[in-house]
């Protein structure tokens, strides 16, 4: 039984861990906020001056900012739609009895272990390249003109690459959820004459909702900061067609060793990510309760 005294002692004992964790989080954040108000370039050290909101207005009025913002949203939503819908389908399929189930599962999960830069290079040079790529060879074999993926549909191509990397994650989480589904419930409904569609819609989907929420939340965190794929394939171009916020921070600030501008861009990215997170939690967060 916990007395008031032992509670105090317990709090006192966990305090070092809490303080350490807090410092771990707060100190870098506070320094970033502090830097974001300075005109601070690594290339002219010792000349830091306070500039107020200059770095922020500069970043927000960047001609590429609006494009980068919409691209970020399109990228996140696009990848989420693809991975969640295909992930559900794959999870249901892989849950069925079949020969070689273990091997098929490994095949499906394998892309998750490929590093982003490597997968971007592979897709760019071996598949999407309009001269030597496999898609171009296939198009030519069918007598078609090869499509220039990265020039004419850069964002869609990046969505494809990123979806390929994240589909295994969604499948894996949803598959484990499928395995905890009560088979007898399904059979009972089948005997009551429920169609396949209604069994999916009224039993399977509600059962998966919590897992889907987890997939969406975790993937959103990572998808907001997609960078390597863009750097390797298109460098954010043509124009700003595939520039997202992360890449914009890189191009506008880090390439120039501009610590102040980079910090401001980083803080804006954090704020945007939080806005997205609040919306997400409002929309689907209730699935996590109970």
């Amino acid at each position: 039984m916990a007395t008031a005294h032992s509670k105090t002692a317990a709090r006192f004992m966990i305090s070092p861990a809490v303080v350490l964790l807090l410092a771990w989080m707060i100190v870098p954040l506070a320094m970033t906020i502090y830097f974001s108000f300075l005109r601070y370039s690594l290339l002219s050290p010792g000349e830091e001056t306070f500039t107020g909101w200059d770095n922020y207005t500069y970043f927000l009025t960047d001609p590429a900012f609006v494009a980068a913002f919409t691209n970020t949203i399109i990228l996140v939503v696009g990848v989420l739609l693809i991975t969640v819908i295909l992930g559900i389908a794959l999870a249901i399929l892989l849950d069925q009895p079949m020969w070689g189930q273990g091997i098929v599962r490994i095949l499906v999960i394998a892309p998750f272990f490929v590093m982003p830069t490597v997968s971007a290079l592979v897709w760019k040079n071996m598949f999407m390249d309009p001269v030597n790529g496999l898609f171009a060879h296939a198009a030519k074999a069918l007598g078609l003109q090869p499509f220039e993926f990265l020039s004419h549909a850069p964002l869609a191509s990046i969505i494809l690459i990123v979806s390929w990397q994240w589909l295994p994650f969604a499948t894996l989480i949803l598959l484990t959820a499928m395995q905890s589904l009560d088979q007898e419930q399904l059979e009972a409904s089948e005997m009551d004459g429920a169609s396949k569609w209604s069994r999916f819609y009224y039993i399977v989907l509600p059962h998966l909702s919590r897992a889907i929420t987890v997939v969406i939340l975790i993937q959103t965190i990572f998808l907001l900061s997609v960078f390597a794929e863009i750097l390797v394939t298109t460098n954010g171009g043509p124009g700003t067609a595939s520039t997202n916020i992360t890449y914009l921070v890189y191009a506008q600030s880090l390439l120039q060793f501009d610590v102040g501008g980079g910090s401001a861009g980083g803080i804006i990215a954090v704020i945007l990510a939080n806005i997205v997170a609040i919306f997400l939690m409002r929309m689907i967060g209730k699935n996590l309760e109970a």
Binding site: L93, R105, L107, V108, A110, P111, S119, V122, F127
Partner: peptide, 8 residues
């Protein structure tokens, strides 16, 4: 489907 995903 598995082989298609693994193909790259």
């Amino acid at each position: 489907i598995g082989i298609a995903i693994f193909f790259p």
